[in-house]
Nucleic acid binder design. Structure first.
Lengths: 253, 253
DNA sequence: CGCAAATTTGAGGATCGTCAAAAGGCGTGG
DNA sequence: CCACGCCTTTTGACGATCCTCAAATTTGCG
């Protein structure tokens, strides 16, 4: 059950064979806990990748003033330090927002799989492209007023959590603080609170008991200008006329 | 001379062989002009990649209100529609800010090169990771006040243009409008103007005659909290202990 | 030279941040 | 079980940043 989310997301790029699935499942043994509000480091050795099995985490940078800006959420089934380490992630950090369960995967082991399996290669490649697409959407979202910005974020979380069965049709458990959301939206915590009240008053969304409830999902999506296309959950099958239909990640050089 | 910027950026991932360089140069024949303020489409056929040889372009989305948000600049030597087409770029568009010269490259041709050459494969893979890193930095930049935000943007442009010999030590030609910069920063055009005046008064940067002049580069970088690490221009050599040292883009499946 | 677009500046208002304090929730220890 | 302390949430007041509208000025271009 643990690696379900991991496989679910990888298979967005197309179905995997039974061998590929079992190879990937073998990576998820021996998880370790990470307490809330603590960084998820890549483990003792620097050459490890981290797979989050449960909990909410985030990628973030800290500004000179000391405040934190979250640039993306890390949900169960997401890999960390795959690309954002070394020169590509010098000041980027990964932190647990809630208690998390993570697995350290030796990079070499993952690379062996990539080299041996075209399906896994493609899956990881597409995961990277989804990250890029999502980052750009976040930039766009930063131009909207706070109310729509929060609405958009809630829609994204709802959609992403539904994919891995962590959200119902109309809500999801969200055990993070309003300050965390503030850092993800780039606004102040008090303003998050005000905006939440506004959304509650408009009957667009409610946040209580660590749970987001969205009475009218379509209304919230419309208000937040949320179009799930950028998440690349659909239309990405292997039989698509896609740019990266065939050419993908693999062990070269 | 035309493909200089293209090769320069690709070789950030490590030197290319003479064959690889000449294969890439062969792609840059027969450029076509794109007028300012016009979208750079992928040509007649959808399965083409666009290489910008000269001019300033941008990737952008349009919000519901009709305003545009630029999510990244496209400079000479940058590829468009490599990954941001099909499902991965449904609402993302590429527009020319100034008159541009672009080359259409059949995707299949590029894929053949990727499959045949590990160096090219790695180079294009790293270009994608740089895009991701840059997008995340833009998210972070959106949390800064407008003055620092503009300073940061100018520093990024200076650094990126210096790489391809389009900037001197202290300035560069920048023939775009203040509205374009406003869309890139997510603020209003009039506020761009005010912020420019502030930077001019502080003697941090001047913009006149379509040229940015930065009297004290270090001062502007400090003010804008600009750390070039996220651009991944350095420390990315093939001899680095990098995550993607070997495993890269290639023709799989 | 004259038109169109871009830049510049002003005034007023909306959004959002900061500071401060009150209220609520949750775990620990008595 | 209650009391206490800490953290989070909530609300208010005030100020800073930024937007919108509008007009004046400059620049670019035919």
């Amino acid at each position: 059950m643990a690696p379900y989310a991991f496989l679910r997301k990888l298979e967005l790029a197309g179905p995997l064979t039974d061998e590929e699935r079992s190879e990937l499942q073998n990576l998820t043994l021996d998880p370790r806990p990470v307490p809330a509000r603590q960084d998820i480091t890549s483990g003792d050795a620097a050459d490890r990748v981290c797979l989050v099995l449960s909990g909410f985490a985030c990628r973030y940078k800290v500004l000179q003033a000391g405040n934190r800006r979250i640039v993306s959420f890390v949900l169960p089934g997401d890999l960390c330090y795959m690309h954002d380490t070394g020169a590509f992630g010098r000041d980027l950090r990964v932190g647990a927002l809630t208690a998390c369960s993570v697995v350290d995967i030796p990079r070499s082991k993952l690379m062996d799989l990539i080299g041996a399996s075209p399906g896994i290669s493609r899956a990881l490649w597409w995961a990277t492209l989804r990250e890029l697409s999502r980052a750009r959407e976040w930039i766009v979202n930063d131009t909207r007023p706070a109310e729509q910005r929060l609405a958009h974020l809630l829609c994204e979380l709802l959609t992403c959590l539904q994919l891995i069965d962590l959200a119902s049709e109309t809500g999801f458990k969200f055990p993070v603080s309003q300050s965390d959301v503030a850092d993800a939206l780039g606004i102040s915590p008090v303003h998050v609170n005000r905006v939440l009240r506004a959304l509650r008053t408009s009957e667009l969304a409610t946040w209580s008991n660590q749970r987001i409830t969205i009475p009218d999902v379509q209304a919230l999506k419309t208000f937040g200008e949320f179009d799930p296309g950028y998440l690349c959950f659909e239309g990405c099958g292997p039989d698509m006329s896609m740019p990266s239909r065939q050419p993908l990640l693999a062990c070269a050089s």
